[in-house]
Design a protein around this nucleic acid. Structure first.
Lengths: 329, 329
DNA sequence: CTAGAGATGGACAACGTTGTCAGGAACAGG
DNA sequence: CCTGTTCCTGACAACGTTGTCCATCTCTAG
């Protein structure tokens, strides 16, 4: 910029004015400066600019894994909102590791991002208190923060499993199984809660081998399925607590002679091409990302109420076939 | 930092030394500074730091759409390599729009990212010349840059379709169709080239209605399929040029009485759960991202040869059933 | 002709760091 | 006691911008 000023024979500030299209520069001066800019291939250094203005026009997004289709969709929605507000996006995957999440978040904060959208991994986010106090707007998404009162955008997880169970009950099932993720994960706990609530509300018992919570590796899911299908009171329908469970369940149920009804939590591509097509409780991943990012920018623009907001997005049941299989006999 | 220095009763530079763990500070001084840092909740401002050191420890990633599983996987691989090198990642989706790509790239450059990994959208990337001259390391991935000689990491697209066609020929097919994306997209052109080459090498003709290039919307794919299946010499096998084509093809072929062999380009989740399971030519998305990011950091570390490198990653044919269907009779 | 207003331009400090360099204390050797 | 060496420490400039403020110039009106 110094060089441009020298070449155009004007002051530093005048160049700044031209670059920022501020008023108060005659067309001739402006043209001379433009020429110098082009000749020297000058590009404003936004880092320096942002150091001065104290707004970085960037937000950080921390989620579990960008490669996961659900988070990928969420991520894209956040990006679109950020772009609409002229902000760039830092992205990082925590891999469900609280330490890594904290590293990423603090690295973003050290870069002085204007705000953060976080899919929390751990259960204690008090480490963020100083940052929030320092003015970093923070919105949690998909799961609430631990020990911290902050904006959060969630899926109605309990309502989702309730919906799924009710759907199965409506199709005649009374022995319904549930396989969910590790209970430490908030969404998993909520989904289990919804399952229990729906069963209880219908006056149905829940036998201990009918539900299993834990890492959703294929082996474990297989084992849990075997257990609930082989006992004295085998389930006639399964509610799969997440995508990975659904996929494994499809693989296992595929090879069984007697059909078992299946409702999956979270939609996935090709669910309608399988045989039978898979009925799911669909979350709105882009909706989550959009809502979170919008809340973030509301905060940044100072047009959000002081107290933290909590939004729960509704789910949608998509009946495709697998959830409408009646119980045997 | 000024405040910390004042509170600890030391100079600015001493605080800087403590924060950066530089040698030459007595333990007592260091402890006093640490205490002040903790008391004030000080965090170094990396933006300022980077302005001074002229290394931003961040790289920009521009791709077509983070929500696409292929790019999501690629993105994650780039992120992992960046993290290993202590760099943060800016991400942006071009949505296949050259103007948007340029906007993103230039925004990243204005932030003075150390380097760029780009899935190019347009066909002219000379706008990057000044940036590259200014020292921004740039690696293109998935497609080469237009009118610009730069590092690039590609899938062996032509080899991939050749492999697919050869596989179908080996299973007795002689009338093989191909549906690909818009010919302007480099990967699409290469895949078409491989298809033609393999047919020619086998001494097989290619009738005009046997291949179609264009936007891969379900309607267009359906129409193309109809055309190649209903003519006087209908194809007995299809090579699908990308994921979207494969999915639509599965839906269409699903409902036909006479089986048509199918090989898809690019693997996808649940390909093995479909009936029949889908044979694919699998690309290595994480491999692309990893190779590109590694090349980027080799450049940044100055341990890459001057001239641009070009890497083509091999594909893998995964036979699952749909590609082994023999031709009728 | 002059005062005042409005337009235009530039000098300078500041943003929060780090690199350079020089000053001062402590210590050892003569 | 002096000198040289080593180790710590801090003052200062610099990175590339923008905000503030003041100087100058050109009008217009009285």
């Amino acid at each position: 910029m110094k060089d441009v000023a020298a070449r155009a024979g004007v002051g530093l500030k005048t160049v700044s004015r031209v670059v920022n299209e501020e008023p108060g520069v005659t067309p001739e001066t402006s043209a001379r400066v433009q020429a110098a800019i082009d000749a020297l291939g000058f590009r404003r250094n936004d880092s320096a600019r942002l150091l001065r203005t104290r707004r970085t026009a960037s937000v950080g997004l921390v989620l579990e894994d960008v490669a996961d289709p659900f988070y990928a969709a969420l991520s894209r929605a956040v990006e679109d909102v950020a772009r609409a507000h002229g902000a760039l996006l830092f992205t990082g995957s925590s891999a469900e590791d609280p330490r890594r999440e904290q590293e990423l978040v603090l690295a973003f904060c050290a870069r002085r991002v204007d705000g953060l959208v976080v899919v929390p991994a751990g259960d204690d986010h008090r480490y963020l208190l100083p940052e929030i106090a320092a003015g970093v707007a923070t919105v949690f998404v998909d799961r609430p923060a631990g020990r911290l009162d902050a904006d959060v955008v969630l899926t109605d997880n309990a309502g989702g499993t309730r919906l799924g169970v009710e759907h199965l009950i409506a199709h005649g099932h009374r022995r319904i199984g549930f396989i969910g993720d590790q209970p430490g994960i908030h969404t998993a706990g909520e989904r289990l809660r919804g399952y229990r609530a729906a069963m209880e509300a219908a006056g149905l018992p829940v036998r201990p081998e009918w539900y299993a919570m834990g890492p959703t590796t294929p082996e474990r899911v297989r084992a849990a399925l075997d257990a609930m299908l082989s006992g004295p009171e085998p389930v006639t329908a399964l509610l799969a607590g997440n995508n990975r469970v659904t996929v494994t369940a499809v693989r296992v149920l595929w090879n069984r002679p007697d059909p078992v009804a299946l409702v999956g939590f979270d939609d996935f591509e090709l669910a309608d091409v399988l045989d039978p097509p898979v009925t799911v409780v669909a979350q709105d991943a882009p909706g989550l990302g959009r809502a979170a990012a919008q809340q973030l920018f509301r905060r940044l623009d100072g047009i959000a109420p002081e107290e933290p907001s909590r939004v729960e997005l509704p789910v949608r049941l998509i009946a495709r076939g697998s959830g409408e299989i009646p119980p045997p006999r």
